[in-house]
Structures are given as C-alpha cells and as structure tokens.
Design a protein around this nucleic acid. Structure first.
Lengths: 129, 129
DNA sequence: GTATATAGTATCAAAAAGGATACCGTAGCA
DNA sequence: TGCTACGGTATCCTTTTTGATACTATATAC
C-alpha cells in the first residue's frame, strides 16, 4: 500500500543516490525527517509545522516512512488518541544527509538570486539554429 | 516550461531541505548529477549510463537541471550534433550532498536486509483496536 | 543507396503523486 | 447539549511525472 517508487532501481552500475532519494524524496518526507531530528512529535504537532499538508498526505508520508523503517510510530491506547512519531536508528542515520540538504538549501536556494548561467553559451547555441 | 515544483515552498519556518530536494529530487536528477561529478559527458553517454531512461525524460531532466543552473549545456555547431553537459559551479557545490546520498544509500539500502521495526509497537496498536 | 549515430521534438497515454472534502468515535469543556 | 481536539479513513478529483512511440536532419561509413 502506497509504495511509491522504492521497488525498482534499474540504473545499472549502482545508484544508491536514487535509492536514498526514493526514500526521502516525497514532497514532505525530507521536512518531516528534519523536524523529527529535533525529537519525538505527535501527529498534529507535525501537522502544524508543515502548514499546508493535509491529513491524508501526512498520514501517507508517515506510513511510508514507517514502512521504510525510518521512523517509529507509537500509538498509546488512549482516547482521544495519542500517537507519537520518532526517528528509528535507521532514520537517525540519515541525519548527515538531511543536514547536508538543509545546509545546501540555505546557502544556495534561499539566499542568493542565482543568475541564469544559461546566457554564456547561448551564443554557441544560436549558432546551430 | 517543465517547471516542476520549484516554485512553492510554503513550509513555514524554513525548509531548505525541501528546496534542495525539489532541485535534485526527480527520478533521474540525482544520478545524472552523480555521473556528471566524474566529468563532462555527452548526451548519449549519459543515456547509456542511465539504462532505462528515455530520450524524452533525459532531455527533460537535463533541461530542468540547466534551468536551475546546476549544469551547463554546450552545443557545438556540428553535424551530427554534439552536446556536452557538465556541472556548473553551482552544481558542483552539490557534491557533498550527492556524496552523502550515495554513502547512505550504499550503507543502508543496498547492503542490509533492514528488518521491519514495526513489530514492537504492534502490541500497543492492537490494544487500541 | 542504405544504415547508423547524433541530439533531440512531438504526441499520446498511463501511472503516480498530491489535494479537497467529508466522515468516524470518544473525552473533556462550556 | 453542543463544541473542540485527537488521529485518523474513505472517496473523489486534479496535477505532475513518467513512459512509449514515431519522427526530424545530416554526416559518415558501408
């Protein structure tokens, strides 16, 4: 159920890159994992931090992360329900990856106005047209 | 054209994680970048390494990477055509990220038979049912 | 004269991802 | 008595992504 694209890694030679991206590449997974780096959280707690996510999506993503062994879901037999999510050991091993993603994003996406590099070689391109 | 999901980063507080994933998160982008870390490559050269990719997909992904300023496309006005792709400076700055993804993938996805952690808490879960 | 390699486009279709909305059952609060 | 919070499901729909296939132009080799 809801297995995304984890099953097929056909890129010969080896692309652990793809394999990893398949696990954390959903729209919300990266951020969820990043938030969970800070500690255990309840469902709605996560939801509030990911403003914009729907319940269905959040449930889906959390379930996939759980199925992939990256997070641990603990439901307390209470009413109203209380469900906690935290990183598994496996998930925590992703910390350097997440932090690398975050560091690069901070340095290269949000800060600068990245100029279109596609201007220099346009002269060559137009020569072929 | 072909802008994927780069435009909207609504996850408040800041998720450079998402921002980065949006750039490298396509099905092939990560691998393409990884291959380009090794040096300049021609179109079909990349294609052969990504066995399974279609021409259309490869073109798309390369165009997006170029539009995002991560790679540089150089077309030589020859016939038959010769087009080279290489990392831009911006793209090369992704090297630690790519390597982190690769390292984790090698260590955690391909090697071990990752046991389903979802067994311990099942007792609690069933108690709620 | 035909085939091949090059780097693509164009068009159509399928699959996957993501989103909107409504609903559930109970506890606690007013 | 009705409201809200909790952590979801179920259903339907739209958008995005991916894939299959056919087509282009020309130089070179056969």
């Amino acid at each position: 159920m809801a297995r995304t694209r984890h099953e097929r890694f056909d890129c010969s030679g080896g692309c652990p890159v793809e394999a990893t991206l398949a696990l954390i590449g959903g729209k919300w997974k990266g951020v969820i994992l990043w938030h969970l780096l800070h500690g255990t959280m309840r469902f709605n707690e996560i939801r509030r931090r990911l403003s914009g996510v729907t319940q269905r999506m959040l449930t889906n993503q959390l379930r996939e992360l759980e199925a992939d062994g990256l997070i641990i879901r603990t439901v307390y037999p209470q009413v109203p329900p209380k469900v906690e999510y935290c990183l598994s050991e496996h998930g925590r091993s992703l910390e350097p990856v997440i932090l690398a993603l975050k560091a690069w994003g901070e340095a290269n996406v949000l800060a600068p106005a990245l100029p279109p590099v596609s201007s220099i070689k346009e002269s060559m391109t137009s020569a072929a047209a």
